[in-house]
Nucleic acid binder design. Structure first.
Lengths: 159, 159
DNA sequence: AAAATATCGTTGATATATCAACAATAACAA
DNA sequence: TTGTTATTGTTGATATATCAACGATATTTT
């Protein structure tokens, strides 16, 4: 209880995990977005969709939302943009007229491979000073926390 | 090389740290923002400024930017809003007319203490299944990565 | 089969976050 | 002192992210 000014509880900002996470994510996303938009003409959401489409070719927007955890509105707008840039083609699911199916074009494939190099390099730079066991711990813990978020957001204080 | 479809490199989304971080931060921030705005009438930026002002009473907006890593535009707008809500008072730094000094009002103090309870509870829920050594590792690693971000964002691919 | 319900994707509104340009002031240099 | 440069905070523009409302289509219930 050394440098807490006055009475009452205060956050220790260096140990408060939500702030550490948010800060890091903001900086990473902003940097990536700026770089990708300038060099490749796509934002970070488009990049994440490209990456997903490489892993799972021909999937529905709905499935994209589930996998990358983005709102369907964001996905809808990004797909529209990528379609205009001829990075993907969108067709109707023959088994269900509500659904669509999104596929990478050759252009989209090529762009993916370009951005991929840069994205991997950025991740490498981020992690390169971490010991192997720290990297593994980080990934394990982040996956765990991602599963916990639903519980956190379900909490409703009784005021 | 089992479930990589086709040739070329693909991201493993469960192991790609930037995505794991971003996903987690988005969900946490969105949930906190919704809750705080509904229950307390402030957004997540305002909450972070409240927390900072509790730790360092009477600081300049510029200092706030440095500590919480937010752009000065965001801080400027949040302070204006908090001033209108009478959560803070803003006065000119007597030693430098460019600077201002922001202080919590009693109202601001009270609101801080209210939000604090909820914020701590949310962090507790997030972390409660983690072993103590995992929590410590997480905090240590996040602080390290936060220092690395500058290096990552300085990287410019030569295309 | 008809009505009620659920799912999928689009759109408008809003919150969050950053950048760039700017005005005011301070610090520094010639 | 005067001209140049740097710092501080504001504002407008834009990117990112979510929610709520909606239309269209499927599914389920009655």
């Amino acid at each position: 209880m050394k440098d807490s000014p006055e009475n009452g509880h205060t956050l220790e900002l260096d140990n408060y995990v939500p702030a550490l996470i948010t800060f890091l994510a903001n900086k990473l996303s902003a940097g990536a977005s700026r770089l990708y938009r300038e060099k490749f003409g796509v934002g970070i959401v488009e990049w994440r969709l490209l990456a997903l489409l490489k892993v799972e070719p021909c999937i529905s927007p709905n499935r994209m939302c589930q996998v990358i955890g983005l709102d369907k509105a964001a996905v809808s707008r990004s797909i529209k943009q990528m379609q205009q840039q001829q990075l993907v083609t969108v067709l109707e699911d023959p088994t269900d007229a509500r659904k669509s199916l999104v596929e990478l074009t050759d252009r989209g494939q090529a762009l993916h491979d370009q951005v991929f190099e840069v994205a991997i390099k950025r991740e490498q730079l981020l992690l390169e000073e971490l010991a192997v066991e720290d990297r593994e711990a980080l990934i394990r813990i982040l996956n765990h926390l991602n599963r916990r978020v639903a519980v956190v957001n379900a909490y409703q204080p009784d005021l």
